[in-house]
Design a protein around this nucleic acid. Structure first.
Lengths: 350, 350
DNA sequence: TTGTACGCGTTATCAC
DNA sequence: GTGATAACGCGTACAA
């Protein structure tokens, strides 16, 4: 048994050609005689040769590896077990299809400096995908100064103005959700906001504020509660809002909405009869809750796929950085908002 | 701006030593004069040097990268959004702590041959973690013949007898769950089994069968339904069991249990009054369901962490392959089984 | 169309 | 203790 795997030289010898020719065949270089190519290919197949990626990376400066960073925003990865797995799935689909491998970095909460240090020095990645970064993350600046392409799955925070990103129109989607509640005749429409260090959370609150300001009721800060993307936050926040006599709530995600629903029901009130609720994300749980949740559906998997496609295009020089993609959302009307007739509102924006 | 990053040679020149000495410092080689080491370290720090991992890998044959394969068992990754993220978290914790990176391979359902081919030829991994493999996976044989350490998070299927694995005592845990139901006076205890291509699913059914055979009621195949680790399977299976007049069900996981609960309630029956239900996994949802689910808790994160630790030990030659770890489970008694007094049964096994 | 020869950045094996 | 120098396996000008 051979100590080390076959290399180009071995194949060249067995095929009776030079190492360079084998290399050309392996890399589909055009100007190789068909007959030679076929022969070499056959030898490679027979002997079971695989190129050594480390050696290739050393000379080409490319690894066909992209990194994905999952920051541990406490609540998210543990509680909302939908968003990140789905995102990862979209990312993996795209990397698979284009022959890249995916290096997964799940932030180490116990030692973030060491974690980010390792990540930044780990120069075996052709590009990087950042998902759901807190705008207060202390390592943002270092990440932004990386010499490789970076795309964000979020509207970019500071330092990232020149980078590409893919997002959804959080402001617009929130406005549509709130306007929907208003159109149903609700008079005290509150919101349970998400994490205000998160761009999505910030923009969804902004959408609520704009919609209320434009309404005949105006914006009332007492109708804002919550502050984290968690069921617990929705539960606690809803209890506070109950004292304000609200009759409708726009929750910044479905976890929050589910927590709010629990608080409503525990208070002996009925949803949607007494209080309407609209969520965001369209988790699997949104459909099976009682009542079924009206919610803004966002295409999470496509978000991952689109970001990855942009990244790979930049890596391969097929496109420049600084591109922005805004994916469409859709208001899925079920029972919790109290709309008599189910309908759907779609908004698209390039 | 420099075209390419600094290398050992550059640092050596700036520090007035040879490349070899810098390398020794970087790798903490013992016999370097303290003064020289300090000086070199300072230059490295000042100039911001990072070793080139590809070059290092080329000569050491080691990459400090481990691969994790997530097979797309249809139901699992999409529906049970708890198991894999939690497992990944345990894995990432361990790789982070020991300075490894994690290459994530989510099986491409649309092109599995190409996917596994790429994976197997991708020789940039020092070891591999296989999670939840179907025993019918056609690529098992190829994976088992890999020359690098492999650990399984599951009892091994064929081809893997010599590999290490970490699992739980599924048979024993299922037996305890069933015996618990019997001890509560239930007379027709059924089971909703999981995927029978999955080692966990197989063993949990086996545990049920043994417990029933040992009981005064004996084993009755008509009391077995289901067949997939999904809510849908639990729902459908429970409807079938209802016709058999069962008064208790052991579900092979919590998704199944939740589906079963829905079927029971839709049939106008009460849980636990009319029908007891016990699940498996202790998902977050198990605690918040109504009634709260009695279930077998398994340490998922620890499963990932333990498997990773074993793998890294093998990679680093700290231990041999073929080790087996069986992690303890715990029966968490809540409301759905109908036990009057909450209690806990723990089982540990080395 | 094919072969020769060099360089990519490290580690490791020698001498000194 | 430290410094040359030979691999490691590959891609690619340049020559032929």
């Amino acid at each position: 048994m051979k100590k080390t795997a076959l290399n180009l030289e071995d194949i060249a010898a067995k095929a009776g050609v030079s190492r360079a020719t084998v290399s050309r065949v392996v890399n589909n270089y055009p100007f190789v005689k068909e007959k030679t190519r076929a022969h070499v290919l056959q030898v490679i197949e027979r002997e079971g040769y695989n190129p050594n990626l480390a050696a290739r990376a050393l000379v080409t400066q490319r690894t066909q590896i992209v990194g994905v960073i999952i920051p541990q925003l406490f609540s998210t990865f543990f509680e909302d077990q939908y968003y990140f797995p789905t995102l990862l799935h979209g990312i993996a689909q795209t990397t698979n299809a284009r022959d890249y491998a995916t290096l997964l970095w799940i932030e180490d909460m116990t030692a973030p400096e060491r974690f980010y240090d390792r990540l930044i020095r780990h120069r075996l990645m052709d590009g990087l995908i950042l998902a759901s970064f807190s705008i207060t993350n202390p390592f943002l600046k270092q990440l932004s100064s990386l010499q490789i392409p970076v795309v964000l799955i979020e509207k970019p925070a500071q330092f990232f103005e020149q980078r590409s990103y893919v997002t959804i129109d959080n402001v617009g989607a929130a406005m549509i959700a709130v306007q929907h509640l208003l159109s149903l005749g609700r008079r005290r429409v509150a919101t349970l906001m998400g994490d205000q260090f998160n761009p999505d959370g910030i923009d969804r609150l902004k959408g609520y504020q704009i919609a209320m300001t434009q309404s005949s009721f105006g914006y009332d800060p007492r109708l804002v509660a919550g502050g984290a993307f968690s069921k617990q936050s929705g539960y606690t926040g809803m209890k506070a809002l109950l004292d304000q006599g609200v009759d409708a709530v726009f929750a910044a995600n479905d976890q929050i909405a589910l927590g709010a629903l629990k608080a409503v029901q525990e208070a002996g009130l009925r949803c949607p009869d007494d209080i309407s609720i609209v969520g965001f994300d369209d988790l699997p749980a949104a459909e099976s809750s009682v009542p079924a949740l009206t919610t803004v559906r966002q295409p999470v998997q496509e978000r991952g796929a689109a970001a990855t496609a942009m990244l790979l295009d930049e890596i391969e020089g097929l496109s420049e950085g600084g591109k922005h993609i805004v994916l469409p959302t859709e208001l899925i009307i079920r029972e919790s908002c109290g709309a008599a007739t189910p309908q759907q509102l779609t908004m698209t924006k390039g």
